[in-house]
């Protein structure tokens, strides 16, 4: 197991390193000079050149790449030249919005999706199953940002129960800050919950036909007990994988949904950074997103191997 974890960790680190290199060189190809930007239009060429040297921009690309990666390992992502603040601080500030939102959406989708999937599988072919599957189909088909707009329209504009958008920092008023996430998180969770319900249903239906369920029944358990004790646990394996993958989708979804609700999260930061051509910021934010996705995959891999010992053996070369 330790060997397995170690190997996976190496893979994880290699992916990140490669991703960082790709991102660095891609963005390095871009025209546009931060030094010129910072010093303004009227600056003399000498002043710009001076600033370039000061910012370390005249070093060859691979040196700057190494410096950047070494900096990130120390938690120093460089300085954003439009915001005139350390990138790490900016990212951290925005993550305080994005992360709770993602976690809340994740919880909602699990709490809604899994039970619905189980109910659906238990009632396979009957009315509840059909109803849930139609709902799930709808949930997958509706874009989450549209669903978010509908939520705003109903709960913020018509009923005025909740704010239509914006965000209060947690330090100022934790209650208000939570309220700001009440609408975005279900918007984000809807497609995920639908997918989860479908995967859970498929997995459970699969498991229900297995021999060990029949054995459990022969032992004298009722069908409900057999499915609950033996079925659900086995069916959770594919669900776990999907949950991990969903994190990636959730992050993508957050970036879009933040725009619906005007939340000052990572996504909005990236968009401002792009429109202002603040490449250091874009670079840092992209890396953070990729770290989040890859780390989730890594954790899922480990969890998977913990739950299912067969996998550990199979992956040994």
């Amino acid at each position: 197991m330790i060997l397995f974890a170690l190997r996976r960790f190496l893979g994880f680190a290699a992916t990140l390193l490669l991703a960082a290199v790709v991102i660095f060189y891609l963005l390095d190809l871009l025209p546009g000079d931060p030094a010129r930007f910072t010093s303004g239009i009227t600056a003399t060429p000498e002043a710009v050149a001076n600033l370039r040297a000061q910012m370390g921009l005249d070093a060859p690309a691979h040196e700057r790449l190494l410096g950047w990666i070494a900096g990130m390992l120390r938690g120093d992502f460089g300085m954003s030249y439009t915001q005139r603040a350390p990138v790490a601080a900016l990212l951290w500030e925005r993550l305080a919005v994005t992360l709770p939102l993602t976690v809340m959406a994740m919880i909602i989708s699990v709490v809604i999706g899994l039970p619905l999937g189980i109910v659906s599988a238990r009632a396979r072919g009957k009315a509840p199953d059909t109803a849930i599957m139609v709902l799930a189909q709808l949930g997958v088909a509706v874009p989450n940002f549209w669903f978010g707009m509908m939520l705003t329209l109903v709960f913020a504009v018509a009923l005025r129960w909740l704010p239509p958008g914006g965000f209060t920092p947690r330090g100022e008023n934790p209650w208000l800050s939570l309220r700001g996430l009440v609408l975005p998180s279900p918007a984000l969770a809807l497609p995920q919950a639908s997918i989860l319900a479908r995967v859970m249903r498929t997995a459970l239906v699969d498991v229900q036909g297995q021999d060990f369920i029949r054995t459990a029944r022969a032992k004298g358990l009722t069908m409900g007990e057999a499915v609950w004790r033996h079925g659900v646990r086995n069916a959770l394996l594919p669900v776990l994988t999907i949950l991990g993958l969903q994190f990636a989708f959730l992050i993508a979804g957050t970036i879009i949904v933040e725009n619906v609700f005007y939340l000052p999260g990572l996504g909005r930061l990236i968009f401002t950074a792009i429109s202002e051509r603040d490449l250091i910021l874009v670079r840092g934010a992209t890396v953070v997103l990729i770290v989040a996705v890859t780390a989730t995959m890594f954790v899922v891999d480990l969890a998977y191997a913990l739950v299912d010992p067969r996998l550990r053996e199979r992956s040994t070369p």
């Binding site: 992916t15 891609l26 874009v282 995959m297």
Partner: peptide
Amino acid sequence: SDFLFAFPAIIVAILVTAL
């Protein structure tokens, strides 16, 4: 493909847009 999976479409889109 593992590597590509680490780039959700939106991140690729962000990079391509920046480019």
